[in-house]
Amino acid sequence: MDQLVVTKASGEKVLFSVGKLKLSLKKSGADDALVQEVLHELEPVLYEGIPTKKIYKHAYAILKKLSKPTAARYSLKKGIMQLGPSGFPFEKFVAEILEMQGYSTQIGVFVDGHCVRHEIDVIASKDGKHYMIECKYHNLSSNKSNVKIPMYIHSRFKDVEKVWPSEQEYEIRFHQGWVVTNTRFTEDAIRFASCMNLHLMGWDYPAKAGIKDMVNSFALYPLTCLTTLSHAQKQRLLDLKIVLCKELLHNESVLIHKAGVKEGHVGSVMNEVESLCGSHRT
């Protein structure tokens, strides 16, 4: 398999990295035996030039058959991309990540700027400081957040940064602006944000503190990762503003009466939820 040429989403042809696949499987909770079984079943369906997206789909299907919780963790990126398109589920998801780090949060707050009125996706507070957070949701992993996004957020931040009780005096309303995205930032976006003291959080940025790291650390898996719910059932729960798997713990009635899950299937769903949430039950 190390000699296989595959096609990335960008169209670029590269050698298939078995090591990267093994690592992603292990990070999803697969032990050595499960990793080997996935590779064994995956090899016959591979062919020269196969899109990496198809490799992911095959690996996910194999995992779903062998270990549903592992498949759910493996599909984290896809699950987050299914939180749209309204924006609110992703904003709530981001707020939950921040709260697990000791921030208090508010979602969708309108504030008056020096020039115009703004809706702030998430306001976070910690240790007496306040942060204006813009959430940039993408439904395709190939969609990066380019430099225009931090430039735009910086201009909004400067407009709402200060409150002017009088022409001569002002108070600091926000101490820093943040941009959080479920994909990646371009190099120019990172460079501009660093220059302007904007904080960025992306799929794997900053190193060891990106979204995927936070989710795995705090078991904040979105319910869209679940393999035991249909797309329609997930959407019903999102419409109810239920976003995270942990919100389903000890709440079987919501699954039955709101999501339309049959009573005989609830046990399977709850088992998967329990496996994903682990000891993070609060």
Score class of each variant (00 low, 15 high):
Glu41Ser: 14
His199Ser: 07
Ile62Leu: 07
Glu247Met: 09
Val261His: 01
Lys77Asn: 11
Ala232Trp: 08
Lys64Arg: 15
Asp239Tyr: 00
Ala232Asp: 14
Leu46Phe: 13
Gln36Ile: 00
Gly84Thr: 11
Ile211Met: 13
Glu96Leu: 14
Arg236Thr: 07
Ala72Asp: 02
Glu272Met: 03
Leu198Lys: 01
Lys129Pro: 03
Val254Trp: 07
Phe110Arg: 06
Lys27His: 01
Val45Ala: 12
Asn251Gln: 15
Leu39His: 08
Ile80Gln: 12
Lys20Trp: 09
Phe192Gln: 00
Val160Pro: 03
Glu169Pro: 01
His40Cys: 03
Ala71Phe: 10
Phe16Trp: 15
Cys225Ile: 09
Pro85His: 11
Lys158Gln: 14
Ile190Pro: 00
Ala9Asp: 12
Ser10Gly: 04
Glu171Ala: 04
Pro85Lys: 10
Gly202Arg: 07
Gly29Cys: 02
Ile153Asp: 06
Met270Ser: 01
Met201Gly: 01
Lys53Glu: 12
Met214Thr: 13
Gln168Pro: 00
Phe88Met: 13
Gly260Leu: 02
Trp164Met: 11
His199Gln: 08
Ala232Cys: 04
Asp31Met: 00
His154Gly: 05
Met201Asp: 04
Ala209Thr: 09
Gln233Glu: 11
Asn271Gln: 14
Glu12Met: 08
Val111Asn: 01
Lys208Asn: 14
Ser104Ile: 02
Ile62Ser: 11
His130Arg: 12
Val147Gly: 00
Ser24Gly: 00
Glu252Cys: 04
Thr186Gly: 00
Lys129Gln: 14
Val273Cys: 02
Glu43Trp: 06
Leu4Asn: 10
Arg236Ser: 09
Phe185Gly: 06
Ala95Gly: 04
Ile55Gln: 11
Leu249Pro: 04
His58Gln: 15
Gly29Asp: 06
